[in-house]
Amino acid sequence: MLKIEMSEEGIATLTMNRPDKRNAMCDALLQQIDGFFSDVPKGVKVVVLTGTGGHFCAGLDLSEHVERNAEDTMRHSRGWHKVLDQIQYGGVPVVSAMFGAVIGGGLEIATATHVRVAEPSTIFQLPEGRRGIYVGGGASVRVGRILGADRMIEMMLTGRKYNAEDALALGLTHYVVSEGEALARAQELARQIASNAPLSNYVMIQALSRIEDMDKAGGLFTESLCAALTHTSPDAVEGLQAFLQKRDPKFG
């Protein structure tokens, strides 16, 4: 269900491969994603996450819905939170290549990635209100921080669908490309990110979203710690020398 391809440049492309289900998320696929991000293979610098069959991910596979009591439902939701935290904070930059359905849990997964690329066919939706349920995979925080509470409430109440251009304006995606070009653009961006200093990438992933949770003084102090850590690294020395010598840096 999860297809993994590795390149010599350290790019791992993960493809959610359930085309007959529009790549809807079942527990088995979620566990495979968790397994990868819990123990990222050595040498992986950047991950590209995508779907197949014309869709990114249509959300939770409701055909495999298991009736749960309140406790089990909460544990299932917290399991999603654990996996998506692994994607966001696993220390490896993740670029998503999106097309077709990015719905419900699919949007929750996408917003756990760091760079998002969408094709014109992409549809962003949180339809939980139409199904009598509420989001459980992190959308309240991740999507809510992008859209703001007011717009997210409207999106959930109405089941509104946003297209790629809408999503670009709102911040749900960072790039819109022509049809069929999302994966190539995502891999191009992944190679660019992979050429950065590994420590800088790691610190940006770990620090920035956490700083958003802090008060001003705590955020500024954390910024100083991150600056101290990166500015005194061997890669910082190489980056400065490369700039002065007008060449591309070669980071460790």
Rank of each mutant, 00 (worst) to 15 (best):
D150K: 15
D150E: 15
R160W: 05
L244Y: 12
K246D: 15
R22V: 03
F56T: 05
R68E: 01
L14C: 06
S121G: 12
C26I: 09
G100L: 04
F243M: 12
E188T: 08
G132M: 02
G10W: 07
T73R: 12
A197C: 15
K216Y: 13
R142L: 07
D61K: 01
D248E: 14
D166M: 04
A12E: 01
S7G: 08
G54W: 03
I211K: 10
E8C: 01
L183E: 05
Q187R: 14
L14Q: 07
R131V: 11
C26A: 14
G105R: 07
A101P: 00
A149G: 03
F243D: 00
C57L: 12
L49K: 03
I193H: 02
L49P: 00
A197K: 04
F251N: 04
A228M: 03
A101R: 15
L199A: 07
S140W: 12
V237Q: 12
T15A: 03
G54F: 02
L107H: 05
F124H: 01
T113F: 06
D213Y: 04
V66R: 13
A182R: 07
L126V: 10
Q31K: 13
G252D: 10
T13L: 00
W80V: 04
G138R: 12
L172W: 06
K82A: 13
L60W: 13
G54E: 06
G100N: 04
L172T: 05
D213F: 07
L107N: 04
S7M: 02
V177Y: 03
I87D: 00
S96W: 07
V115A: 00
L14S: 02
A164C: 07
H114K: 00
A169Y: 02
M204G: 06
V94Y: 08
A28K: 11
R75Q: 07
L208K: 13
G105N: 04
I4R: 15
T230D: 10
D20W: 10
F37C: 06
N23V: 01
P93F: 12
D72G: 01
S233V: 07
F251M: 09
P127C: 10
G54A: 13
I11R: 00
E188C: 02
I193L: 14
V141M: 05
E188M: 04
C26G: 15
A197M: 04
V141Y: 12
G138M: 13
Y89L: 13
G105W: 11
M152D: 04
I211C: 09
G51Y: 15
F36Q: 08
A190G: 08
R160Q: 14
Q88A: 15
W80P: 00
G137P: 08
L183F: 09
R145P: 02
K3D: 09
L225W: 00
I153W: 04
N23T: 08
E223W: 11
G79D: 07
T13K: 06
M152G: 03
N69M: 02
G138L: 14
Q192T: 06
G59H: 04
S178Y: 11
L229V: 08
V117T: 02
L244R: 15
K21S: 05
A236L: 03
S96A: 15
V92S: 06
G59P: 01
D150L: 00
